[in-house]
Design a protein around this nucleic acid. Structure first.
Lengths: 176, 176
DNA sequence: GGGTAATACTTGACATCTCAAGTATCTCGC
DNA sequence: GCGAGATACTTGAGATGTCAAGTATTACCC
């Protein structure tokens, strides 16, 4: 696919980054970089908070948060899906939490391939104390935005998310 | 810990202060989760594209992108800052790229602690071919949004980013 | 000059993450 | 029932990421 946009000769520095691409490309790229930057900064703050206040990590907190909403427990595959990470990853994080007694794997009697992962009482206790702090951090980080701005942002991201989800089945071709 | 920032607007009888705070927490949390979800999905797609099309990774691409904009080269510390990762991380990624001949470390004669990292000719060639594809991916991913929506999203994220930067301290902000 | 602090980078320990390959279990067609 | 394929999870290799400690060099101050 010849895109024919990169001149091989040296380009004056002042023009390079700004005008190298078509305007629409430029806008989308900058939008992507800004989105990434915001997410990274927030994520970094939350991670540092969890580390310094509770000596734990974001994926551990995330896994426990998923379990807290599912008192009946979740399968490893369900955790993988909800956390948007691979199964191998969930195995490792669950191992760590189980070793610390915050989580248990229970074998499903109906299907012995399946583990039902649940929060222990201690895990639940720890999670609740973390969740309160976590919420206050997030509220503070997004606090400067007005309710209207939050609503707008929510809607725009919702639309983006929906389009992204739509690409999952359509553009990659159907797997029989 | 109650984080009362009581607004002065009238509140319907059914919504006392506590409920309102809870709602705000709920909104901010959902906003954060949605932001994270969008970023993760886009990042995942870009990463997979780089992997399958060029057998490389996002951080490698990112580092090369920084260098492409700085023909005079960048210090390791500058790379660290621009990529928003720690110095130790930059060392590892640079090691890999240098081993493949895409990048070189040049000692700064004026300050022998400093490495000036530059793209090699081969690195530049590879980057340009990757950048073209990368741009088309990003344009496609954000394509469904109208120009107006992109502008709105850009502004909202810009405000968020600025507030986040403000929390860091009294450093000067950068625009990206 | 010489000693102390700051700066630039590297290293090592550890936690995530992906991917691909491996093991155990279930499902379904025959 | 039995064997092929699907499903659920684990494992291992490799890349990224943080943090803290270490090394080399420069800057500063008397």
């Amino acid at each position: 696919m010849p895109r024919e946009k990169t001149a091989l000769k040296p380009v004056p520095a002042a023009l390079d980054a700004e005008t190298r691409v078509h305007d629409d490309h430029h806008v989308s790229l900058r939008l992507w970089l800004r989105l990434l930057s915001c997410t990274n900064q927030i994520e970094s703050r939350v991670r540092q908070g969890l580390q310094s206040s509770f000596n734990t990590t974001l994926p551990r907190f995330d896994l426990m948060a998923q379990l807290e909403r599912a008192p009946q427990g979740l399968k490893m595959s369900e955790l993988s899906q909800r956390m948007m990470v691979t199964g191998g990853n969930v195995t490792g994080i669950t191992d760590g939490l189980e070793k610390e007694g915050l989580v248990v794997r229970e074998v499903d009697p109906a299907d012995r391939r399946v583990y039902r992962v649940k929060l222990t009482a201690e895990g639940e206790r720890q999670f609740h104390s973390m969740a309160a702090e976590h919420e206050s951090w997030v509220v503070d980080l997004f606090g400067p935005l007005s309710p209207k701005q939050k609503k707008q942002l929510m809607e725009l991201l919702g639309e983006l998310k929906e389009h992204l989800a739509g690409l999952n089945g359509a553009s990659a071709g159907d797997k029989a």
